[in-house]
Amino acid sequence: MNQYKCHNCGWVHAVIPLVQAEAAVLAANEYYLSKGLAPTETLESYLKCVRCGASSDKFLPARPSDVPFGTTIDTVVMP
Rank of each mutant, 00 (worst) to 15 (best):
M1F: 02
M1L: 09
M1K: 08
N2Q: 12
N2I: 04
N2G: 01
Q3L: 11
Y4W: 09
Y4D: 02
Y4V: 15
K5Y: 02
K5G: 07
C6A: 09
C6G: 05
C6L: 05
C6Q: 03
H7L: 08
H7I: 05
N8D: 11
C9P: 05
C9G: 07
C9E: 05
C9F: 07
G10K: 04
G10C: 06
G10V: 01
W11N: 14
W11Q: 15
W11S: 14
H13T: 09
H13Y: 04
H13M: 09
A14Y: 06
V15W: 01
V15A: 15
I16D: 06
I16V: 15
P17E: 10
L18M: 13
L18E: 15
V19I: 12
V19S: 15
V19D: 15
E22Q: 15
E22A: 15
A23T: 05
A23L: 11
A23S: 13
A24P: 00
A24C: 03
V25L: 08
V25D: 08
V25R: 02
V25N: 04
L26N: 11
A27E: 08
A27R: 14
A28Y: 07
A28E: 10
N29R: 02
N29G: 09
E30Y: 00
E30H: 11
E30F: 00
E30N: 14
Y31C: 12
Y31M: 14
Y31T: 14
Y32S: 14
Y32D: 14
L33E: 14
L33G: 05
S34K: 13
S34N: 12
K35W: 01
K35Y: 00
G36T: 03
G36W: 06
G36L: 07
L37C: 09
A38Q: 10
T40Y: 01
E41C: 06
E41W: 01
L43H: 01
L43Q: 04
S45Y: 00
S45F: 00
L47Y: 12
L47G: 02
L47C: 03
K48Q: 10
K48W: 00
C49H: 07
C49Y: 03
C52A: 11
G53I: 03
G53S: 07
A54S: 13
A54N: 08
S55K: 12
D57V: 06
D57S: 13
F59A: 11
F59G: 13
F59C: 12
F59T: 07
F59H: 10
P61W: 07
A62K: 01
R63T: 08
R63K: 15
P64Q: 05
P64L: 06
S65W: 08
S65V: 10
S65T: 12
S65I: 08
V67R: 11
V67M: 12
P68D: 07
P68L: 11
P68V: 07
P68H: 09
P68N: 06
F69S: 12
G70H: 02
T71C: 10
T71L: 03
T71K: 08
T72H: 09
T72W: 01
I73W: 03
T75W: 02
V76E: 06
V77P: 04
M78E: 07
P79S: 05
